[in-house]
Design a protein around this nucleic acid. Structure first.
Lengths: 177, 177
DNA sequence: TATCACATGTAAAGGGTTACATGATTGC
DNA sequence: GCAATCATGTAACCCTTTACATGTGATA
C-alpha cells in the first residue's frame, strides 16, 4: 500500500490539511503501525488532486502559509474501498533490539541491562498511551488501540519475566576499552 | 542499522555464503524481525570485503557457481561490537491489516471476517514455528524466539476474544457490485 | 516433467527519509 | 528568550525491491 492510499484513508475520517495528516502518523491513529512524513505526504496529496481522488480548498491565513484543506471525492472513496478489498501485505516488523539481543553472549552485562530497561520504559509509555479510549473513535480505532495495548502488555510481561535469560548470558566486564 | 551491519552479525555466527545469509533472513534466526534480499546482501558483502571487515575464500564447485565463503575479520568483529553499542533505532512496525481494520465500519462483514481468519491462520503458523527450541541456538536466539512466541500468542488470544468488535461494526451486505 | 534447492550477481526503477527553505505566534 | 506549534513544499540522497541473467542436480 502506497502513501497515497494511506492519505485517502486519513481523509476518510474527515477533511484535513497535509499538516494534520502528518500528525495522524506521528501521534494520531496511525502512529503505531504506519509511517509517513511530509516528504511523502505533500507530494501524495498533489498527485491525488491531479487524479481527482481528492479536492482541495484554500483557506487564507495571516502570518503563515495558507491552509490547504483536502476532501475525499466519490472517486477517492471508491478507490479506497478497492484498496481495502485487495490482498493485504503481511505485517512488517523490524527490530534492532532483537538483532542486538541475539549477541547477548558477546555483550557486556551492563549494556544488555540498559537495553532492556530502555525498552521497558518505552513500552510502558506506549501502553499508557493506548489505555485512553476516545469517544469519537471508530470501532476499528478502538479495536486497534486495544490490540496494541494487549501486544505491548504481553511484551512487557515477557521482558520482565525473562530478561534474566539474556542478562545472565552477557559477559561480566566493562565495555571494550 | 545498515545491511552491512546485519551481514556482519550473520557472520558472527560462523562463516557463510551470500546464499546462506539470505536464508537467515528468509527462514532463519533473523526472519521474524529483519529484512534483506540478494539485491542488498551481495553488494554489502562486496563492500565489506573492500573495507577489510570480512575476508572471502572461494570454493570451487562443478555445475554451479563457485561458492564464496565469507569470514569476519578482527576488524569486522570490532565494528559489529561498536554498532551494537550505539543507540538502537526503535522498532518499526507496519501493518496493513490494522490500517484496514480502522475502516471496519465501512467494509462488508464477510471481508472483515476473512481478514481476521487469514491473520489468525498466519499467526498460528508462526507460533508453531517459534515453538521448536534448537540446541545450537545462542541464548539470545532462544530469547528472541520465546519473545516472538509470547507476542504472537497474545496476539492470537486478543483476536479470538475481540474479533466480534469489528465484525459487528462491519456492514451486512455483499461487496460493492 | 516440473519444480525446488543450490549459487552468484547486476541494473533499473521505485520509494521514502532527511535536510533545506521560510516565518509568525504562543506558551513556558 | 527559547522551544514548540502551526504550515507548506522541494530535492538530493540513500536504499531496497524486482526483474533479469545463467545453469545444474535432486526430488516429486
Amino acid at each position: 500500500m502506497h502513501v497515497t492510499t494511506l492519505c485517502l484513508g486519513a481523509l476518510a475520517f474527515g477533511d484535513a490539511t497535509g499538516y494534520e495528516i502528518n500528525k495522524m502518523f506521528e501521534d494520531g491513529p496511525f502512529s503505531h503501525f504506519l509511517d509517513a512524513s511530509y516528504g511523502s505526504i505533500y507530494p501524495a496529496l498533489t498527485r491525488l488532486t491531479d487524479e481527482g481522488l481528492v479536492t482541495c480548498r484554500t483557506e487564507q491565513q495571516e502570518g503563515r502559509p495558507d491552509k490547504k484543506i483536502y476532501s475525499l471525492t466519490e472517486k477517492g472513496r471508491h478507490q479506497l474501498g478497492d484498496a481495502l478489498g485487495q490482498q493485504l501485505a503481511p505485517d512488517k516488523f523490524r527490530s534492532e533490539f532483537l538483532f542486538t539481543v541475539l549477541f547477548a553472549h558477546l555483550l557486556p552485562r551492563d549494556r544488555v541491562r540498559s537495553l532492556v530497561d530502555q525498552r521497558l520504559a518505552a513500552m510502558k509509555e506506549k501502553v499508557e498511551d493506548l489505555s485512553q479510549a476516545d469517544e469519537e473513535d471508530t470501532p476499528g480505532m478502538d479495536f486497534a488501540r486495544r490490540y496494541g495495548h494487549a501486544v505491548f502488555a504481553a511484551s512487557i510481561e515477557f521482558l520482565e519475566r525473562n530478561r534474566h535469560l539474556i542478562e545472565e548470558a552477557a559477559i561480566e566486564e566493562k565495555a571494550h576499552a
